[in-house]
Nucleic acid binder design. Structure first.
Lengths: 263, 263
DNA sequence: CGACTGTAGC
DNA sequence: GCTACAGTCG
């Protein structure tokens, strides 16, 4: 028996908006720790990792560990039927093959429940090793989204370079080139507007903008985003979910092909 | 060497929105006077003339006259990457084949530079003779835009007639006819809401609404528009650009075909 | 906060 | 031509 009551239902709505374009089907894993998901995107290039800790739920009952395979498109359709202020409760019976989403309007005048079939999904749950990163950039999430969107009107890939001076996003395409430099800036009115660069070693890595733009669908979940970079490790793009956990996206860098030295 | 610093970068963004649908490629001419453009639209029917005077720039360096051929679609893509509050600097080296647009955020924390290839464009720079106009109408630009849009849902052309009484915009289509009359009105709270008609001689001319609706893309540049009319001369639709210059559109009138007297 | 409209991009 | 997003209105 599983029953998770989330007062701020809009969080779950936003989480689904953030991942449903990247991942079609995935297992949600529920344990005493929390409600989590780990899945490769459909083209097997990027990885999404979500955690909503049990403490963030108003009521959290999970009698035993359970993995529920869901079609995220269908789940998202149902969650769209919840109001932004609704309380969402996720329910499932042990051994059942369905999950129920219950939505309560703030006034309790409207109670909806949506039942969805579960599916069997093969999932290799990869252990993600803790890593030391050469550089960690924390910046306003809206600004990161704007940069990825702007650069994708010029090129397909972005080179992210971190030096002491700041972080540079560069691209190149048929119509020209673009460079956007952000310098570290902690002297802002609101802490969420700061750009903070922790650098142990300079780093410069190339990524497909298509995936970056997918990741930025998570922007509504947090005012800030953290980008962790190391040579030859996947970048981690993390959005913290207030009081509850996080959503993290992993993406392997492209191996830079030097035009001059191609065979 | 050319370096033009425009504090109100949104002006240049709006200028490009106003002309990029009308003209694909054009030469920007830079001299001590200012930054200007003159180009026929792609179907060679209308003419655009833009002037941004050097005095309107915070910094204006133009060592020698230079003509830079740009694809306005690509230029517009790049300018869309500038924030509305950004300071825009246009840079080019003498004899170079690229132009660079630099965008500085108001806080200086974000500096972007976009480099674009220049192109060779044949341009016949027409001298536009000064002319006496039979009538000059000055009116709120939003009202003019609304009228052109409304009339184009009924017909394809507009007859603009000016008499002592006012200015009349008429059209005729399959579903019926429409006439919109504005009388002179200077007794308004704000001067930009006035409709002022200077008439030396009554005039009535016919224009294609398709072009008029293109011209009204310049509406965000100015609260007022000036329409100058003379029989058998192109109409001039002018939007002043505060402190800097203007954008003017020229369009030849259609020769009225009287349905009744056609052979 | 939800619905609608108008616009821009695919 | 269609869909997605943003801005505006109620």
């Amino acid at each position: 028996m599983l029953e998770l009551r989330l007062v701020q239902g809009s969080l779950l709505k936003k989480v689904l908006e953030a991942i449903k374009d990247l991942v079609n089907d995935a297992n949600f894993d529920c344990s005493a720790t929390g409600f989590s998901l780990q899945a490769m995107d459909s083209s097997h290039v990027a990885l999404v990792s979500l955690l909503l800790r049990s403490e963030g739920f108003e009521h959290y009952r999970c009698d035993r560990n359970i993995s529920m395979g869901m079609n995220l498109g269908n789940m998202s359709k149902m969650l769209k039927c919840a109001g932004n202020d609704d309380i969402i409760t996720i329910k499932a019976d042990d051994g059942g093959d369905t999950v129920t989403f219950m939505f309560e309007s703030p006034t309790q005048d409207k109670i909806s429940d949506f039942e969805m079939k579960l599916m069997d999904i093969d999932s290799e749950h990869l252990g993600i090793p803790e890593a030391e990163y050469h550089a960690i950039v924390r910046m306003p999430s809206a600004e990161f989204a704007r940069i990825c969107k702007d650069l994708s009107s010029i090129g397909d890939t972005v080179v992210i370079s971190v030096t002491k001076e700041g972080v540079k996003f560069s691209t190149r395409g048929d119509i020209g080139t673009a460079n956007i430099v952000l310098r570290q800036n902690t002297t802002v009115d609101k802490p969420e507007e700061a750009t903070i660069i922790e650098m142990n070693e300079p780093v410069s890595l190339t990524f497909a903008l298509r995936y970056m733009n997918s990741f930025t669908k998570a922007t509504p979940l947090s005012n800030t985003v953290t980008i962790s970079l190391s040579s030859e490790l996947p970048v981690v793009v993390e959005y913290k979910i207030a009081e509850m956990g996080y959503i993290r996206f992993y993406l392997a860098p492209k191996i830079e092909e030097d035009e001059e030295t191609k065979p």
